[in-house]
Design a protein around this nucleic acid. Structure first.
Lengths: 174, 174
DNA sequence: CGCTTAACCGACCGCGCTGGTAGGATTTGA
DNA sequence: TCAAATCCTACCAGCGCGGTCGGTTAAGCG
């Protein structure tokens, strides 16, 4: 799997906060009950969002969390990165050293590294998808149960068939 | 990380086979030595490619492996899928049931699932990147050490700046 | 025929990460 | 002073990853 539960829970938490008015803080307990998630684990998740300054917090009774910025100004690549760490297709993209997998992705002897080309394209595809989605979109989507534009923030959609359909048979083996 | 070493090794193996003339089989040992990979582990990797009918094999002395099809007709999403299994951002995309992470991605009560929208877009981004890359491209890239078109199979490249640069600061925390 | 090469197969295994839980300390409002 | 909440650290079981090992079968060669 590409993303861990931290990403799932964290995004849901952000959406939940986005659904609230930013005036009053929302307690984690409320979110945990609304989404059916373990409270103690949510604490770890929200800590990452706080360190990334995506949410703010108030302690004590009637404390809680709220979005640090307008949902329209929060792109999901920030959120996912805060939760998951670096978005990289292979280990060597983030840790040049200290890795197990044998990887000669350095530009060795002028010969191009074919796999690095591939992974770089994939990384670009992922990051673009995340950057083009704002938290506001997800909040709105969670309100209506309907399908908005399938991709892109507010780009001229038009050519829907350019996307070759999210893979016809992409959930088979293993 | 998104991909495991199986993907890395498997893709390298496919590129290596693509560099050979398809007439005579290449032994795993030769590939292992050329790429500096553990032979015994490569066996497991190539077994997946064989089951997916991407490579063919001959046993016995002077046996080995070769590509089952022309590199131009092999898109990398087939290869990666054979190696990694389903390309899914979250567990529930592949196993509707039998999962640990709490995930209510079913269309529950008409309310849209915001995270599923996001993960679907990401999945689309990945799969598009993989589909648009052919093995032939990687083989050619491994011959010349130079950078060809940064993305797209053989599309009119032109607008390179359409890609918002593979993330400026996307390798920080964790 | 026997030797060598190499594909094929299945069992095993250490390590690190994931997905939590437990318990407490601190801050704030009532 | 009590309750509600954030905050922080430590701990833990399970399992997937990245291999290794040993053996079997099949084909070429002298």
């Amino acid at each position: 799997m590409i993303f861990s539960s931290k990403a799932e829970y964290g995004v849901r938490l952000m959406v939940e906060l986005g659904r609230q008015s930013p005036a009053h803080p929302t307690s984690l307990k409320a979110v945990a009950e609304a989404e059916g998630l373990p409270l103690a684990y949510l604490e770890q998740v929200v800590a990452r969002l706080r360190k990334a300054e995506l949410v703010m917090s108030a302690r004590g009774a009637h404390g809680g969390y709220w979005l640090a910025r307008d949902p329209h100004d929060i792109s999901m690549d920030e959120v996912v990165q805060a939760l998951e760490g670096a978005i990289a297709p292979m280990e060597c993209f983030v840790n040049e050293h200290t890795e197990r997998v044998l990887c000669s992705h350095e530009p060795d002897a002028g010969r191009g590294c074919a796999t690095k080309l591939l992974w770089t394209r994939v990384q670009g595809g992922i990051i673009r998808s995340l950057q083009q989605t704002t938290l506001a979109e997800l909040v709105e989507f969670s309100r209506r149960g309907e399908t908005p534009e399938p991709t892109g923030t507010s780009l001229p959609v038009a050519r829907r068939s350019a996307v070759p359909a999210p893979a016809p048979g992409l959930v088979p083996s293993t």
